[in-house]
Nucleic acid binder design. Structure first.
Lengths: 136, 136
DNA sequence: TCTTTATTAATAAAAATTATTATCTAAGGA
DNA sequence: TCCTTAGATAATAATTTTTATTAATAAAGA
C-alpha cells in the first residue's frame, strides 16, 4: 500500500487510527462496502462509529484517495485510487475483480471524448455477468 | 419509443397510466433520477405516489425494460433498455450523454471475459469529465 | 357489465446517510 | 516531555432514502 500517512498529511488530514484502518480495510478487500468496512474494523476496535466511516470515506473521496464504485442494483463499494481499469462484477456472488484496461480501449475512449469536446478525467468500466465460481 | 404496452403485458404487468408515464418520462429525459421522474409526472397527475415510482422502477428493472445507471458520487439515474453504450458524464452539470460503443471495445471486453471464464451479460461504461458546455 | 386480480395512494416502517456536539487525540512548539 | 490547539471521534439525533403494508381503486378478460 502506498504511503497514505503522507498523502493524508499533504491534504491537511490528520493521521488517525480510524483513517489508516479504513484504508487498510479497503486495501485488503480490494472492493468493500461502508458497512463491511465498519464491521471489519469493529473486530479489533469496537468503539468505531459508523458515522466516522461515512465521514472519512467522504473526505478521502474528496482528496482522491478513495474511489466509489457504484454497482447497478447493489450498494456501492469503495476502492483505493488506482489507474483506470475494468471491473468484472459477478451478479450472483457480488465479487468484483479488477482487470487492466487495454491501451486500445483507452485510445478509443480518448477519441470519443475529443470528438465530443469532452474533457475526460476518469472512467469506470463495469462488466456484469457471472464469475467462474458461480457458473454451476 | 418501443411498444412498451405489449412488453409490459408479456411479463404480466398491467398497463397503467403510471407505468406508461414513467416510461415516457425516462424516454424523454434519456437519463433521470427517481425524484425527477416523480416531479415530472406530478405536474399533470398530482396524486402520483413516490412509492409507486420506486415500486414500478424496481419491477420494470426486473423484467429488463428499465436499467439503473449508477453514478459515482451522485444519485442513480434510470434509462430505457438499449444496446451497450458509453456514458459521457459531466461532473459539473450532471448531464449524461450516450455514445455508441466501438466494436473493438466490445471485442476486447469479450476477450477479457473469456480469459477469466466470466460469462459477460452487460456492460456499463462511464466516462467522467467535463462536458463542452461546462468547460468555461 | 361483472368479476377477478393486480395496482395505486397513503402511510408507516425500515434503512441509509448526514449533522450536531461534547469529549478526546494528533501534531507541532515551548 | 509537556502544553496548546485545531481537528477528529463517538454517540446520538435528525434527515433522507427506500421498502413494506393495506384499504381503496382500476385494468382486463369473461
Amino acid at each position: 500500500m502506498t504511503n497514505y500517512q503522507n498523502l493524508l498529511k499533504s491534504y491537511g488530514l490528520k493521521t488517525t487510527f480510524q483513517r489508516l484502518s479504513i484504508l487498510k480495510s479497503i486495501d485488503i478487500a480490494g472492493h468493500i462496502t461502508i458497512d463491511d468496512i465498519h464491521k471489519d474494523i469493529l473486530t479489533n476496535h469496537p468503539s468505531l462509529s459508523l458515522a466516522t466511516v461515512y465521514n472519512n470515506i467522504l473526505k478521502m473521496q474528496n482528496i482522491g484517495v478513495v474511489v466509489e464504485v457504484p454497482i447497478s442494483g447493489k450498494k456501492s463499494k469503495y476502492e483505493l485510487i488506482k489507474d483506470d481499469h475494468i471491473h468484472l462484477i459477478c451478479q450472483k456472488c457480488g465479487s468484483v475483480v479488477d482487470k487492466d484496461i487495454n491501451c486500445d480501449v483507452e485510445q478509443i475512449f480518448d477519441k470519443i471524448s475529443v470528438e465530443n469536446n469532452f474533457v475526460l478525467l476518469s472512467t469506470q468500466n463495469n462488466l456484469y455477468g457471472v464469475c467462474k465460481d458461480c457458473i454451476y
